[in-house]
Design a protein around this nucleic acid. Structure first.
Lengths: 107, 107
DNA sequence: TCGTTAGTTCGAGTAGAGTCGAACAAGCGA
DNA sequence: TCGCTTGTTCGACTCTACTCGAACTAACGA
């Protein structure tokens, strides 16, 4: 299991990012990464099967939303914050900020 | 063909909006609406079949991204800008701003 | 080297999208 | 009322996603 491939910043596509973020499970993962910084796949699965999570991480990786780094047997994931901010200024802020308001104010 | 139903502002869901915007055809429609204000379905179809466009407008409507108003036989669509801005501040700006940069800088 | 742990890959099942032609419905003008 | 125009709905097709168990692979420690 060598380091998985990631798109370069310039190759990150808006529609793919939006698509990656449009799934509740993946949005949840992104939220957690935003709060907790870097985390392994298992730490973010909330009890969901490994194979399902592996699928979602792949989508997030391929879209350029997260970067995965191998550390022993664990795969550490983190948001590609700066790169995304540079490429789509304000997008992640809007998605995640809204999220917090949603969690606090509405529920 | 009475006025189609639209979700209330408070009922607009982030994941559905992101999903609606993640399709190139729909994103293109949203771009055009952003530039041109209000427009009929035909004016935005770029030669695509009516049934396909009808599908996309439905997705955009159901997600709360556009509002459709009947005017004679035509259906006029417009972005629900203010409502979206209120519910997800900065989201549409990020999506559309990036869009323009993309169109200008890259193409 | 043998487990153990952490993820990936595969395969199958199910559901949902996008595409498009054809038929339908509604409003308008002649 | 008869067309014409504009969209919607329906049905069929194809493709892709999500889900999850099972098998596999890689790294680490004892």
């Amino acid at each position: 299991m060598r380091e998985p491939s990631h798109p370069e910043t310039a190759a990150i596509e808006l529609t793919r990012v939006l698509y990656a973020l449009s799934d509740p499970v993946r949005l949840d993962v992104v939220r957690q990464l935003d709060r907790e910084g870097e985390a392994s796949c298992t730490a973010l699965d909330r009890g969901r099967p490994k194979s399902s999570m592996s699928h979602h991480f792949r989508v997030l990786r391929d879209a350029g939303v997260v970067r995965t780094r191998c550390e022993g047997t664990a795969h550490m994931n983190k948001l590609r914050r700066e790169e995304l901010d540079r490429r789509f200024p304000g997008l992640l802020d809007a998605v995640l900020a809204r999220d917090q308001r949603h969690n606090q104010g509405q529920k």
